[in-house]
């Protein structure tokens, strides 16, 4: 749904929607593809891979069968190559906000970008939920969000002629410091130490702006907010020389991402401690036609392992075939010997 609550005019009609482009969502494309089900994949991150790509792209994983060692990014790249023949369509940087069953039995899926789908079935492979920017635990911060405090820059105009405080030491903080400096009334970059994780070139550019007195650099940490009616007026900053009151009317905190269950909780599914209970034959939720696989589901004995999610994707696909092709018998086949599967994979 877009801001005014309307939905884009022409829905995308498809067999399956996969919510989440982590390893399990990606492998679901493969398993569904083998049984001739086309999928659209939606993910809140701007790239596929989910936690593997976002949290530990360089960290080795040791328990993927057949791969003694693989990094999060390596596994993502390998899965993307593996599912290429099935031509799934990716909708990245979008969060699924609404999921509901329609009168004709199909499911309507709407993202925060207003993209609108109608699908015969839905697979929730949302892991720990949606990645959302970390909110600094400062008292009363909610009141300023969207008016004075932003976790991303959607419109540069929101910062024009403003007194901007950017907080953080990575690329987001540096990039927005560099980009907003020309249009802001004044801009201060705040970081807890005089050492930045961002790209060296950006750090150099930032240091040059500080030398030219075009921006200020403060070393310290936010301690309190000041303002009224959603209008921020100052931030109290803890520095090694004591507390400093820093007047500003725009704040951009960049403290990375965290996982929140998010909108999944509003889709009318049974939930158990923020997980979606499923059966272990089809991995279907309390709503027939909606499946949940990977870290987001729960069943007796559940282990949050990537390999378990792969297995769940395979069994889910058998049940999915009955929904998408009712009455059509599914012949169980192996990729090693089936010429029809090999044709789908583009290897025969």
């Amino acid at each position: 749904m877009v801001a005014d609550g309307t939905v884009s005019a022409a829905p995308i009609e498809t067999d399956a929607i996969i919510i989440g482009a982590g390893p399990i969502g990606l492998f679901a494309v493969f398993e569904l593809g083998l049984v001739d089900i086309k999928a659209h994949v939606i993910d809140i991150l701007g790239k596929p891979g989910g936690q593997c790509a976002e949290l530990y792209p360089e960290k080795p994983i040791y328990d993927i069968p057949g791969l003694p060692i693989v990094t999060g990014q390596g596994l993502t790249d390998a899965l993307m190559a593996q599912i290429k023949p099935f031509g799934a369509t990716f909708h990245l940087g979008q969060r699924v906000d609404a999921l509901q069953k329609m009168d004709d039995g199909r499911f309507q899926v709407v993202t925060d970008a207003g993209t609108h789908f109608l699908a015969k079935m839905v697979v929730i492979a949302a892991g720990g939920g949606s990645f959302t920017p970390k909110r600094p635990p400062l008292a009363g911060i909610e009141a300023y969000e969207g008016t004075s405090i932003f976790y991303s820059v959607r419109r540069m105009d929101d910062f024009k002629d403003s007194d901007v405080l950017v907080v953080g030491g990575g690329d987001s903080a540096l990039d927005w410091t560099l980009n907003l400096q020309p249009i802001a009334n004044n801009l201060t970059l705040l970081h807890r130490r005089d050492d930045f994780r961002g790209a060296p070139h950006s750090v150099e550019q930032m240091r040059a702006l500080v030398r030219d007195k075009k921006i200020a650099l403060l070393i310290g940490q936010m301690a309190a907010l000041e303002g009224n009616n959603g209008a921020l007026t100052a931030v109290t900053i803890k520095t090694k020389d004591g507390d400093v009151r820093h007047p500003c009317n725009r704040l951009l905190p960049f403290f990375g991402l965290t996982m929140k269950l998010g909108p999944v909780a509003n889709w009318g599914l049974n939930l158990q401690e923020n997980l979606v209970p499923v059966d272990t034959e089809k991995f279907e939720t309390s709503t027939p036609g909606i499946f949940a696989i990977g870290d987001i589901n729960w069943y007796p004995g559940k282990l949050k392992l990537i390999l378990s999610g792969f297995h769940e994707a395979a069994l889910m696909s058998q049940a999915a075939h009955r929904i998408v092709y009712p009455g059509k018998k599914l012949l169980f086949q192996y990729t090693t010997s089936s010429s029809s599967l090999q044709k789908k994979l583009g290897v025969s």
């Binding site: 970390k134 130490r193 050492d195 403290f255 990375g256």
Partner: peptide, 11 residues
């Protein structure tokens, strides 16, 4: 770890 501490509060 020092880099990751940038993401913590009240370091």
């Amino acid at each position: 770890e020092e880099d990751m501490l940038d993401f913590a509060f009240d370091v």
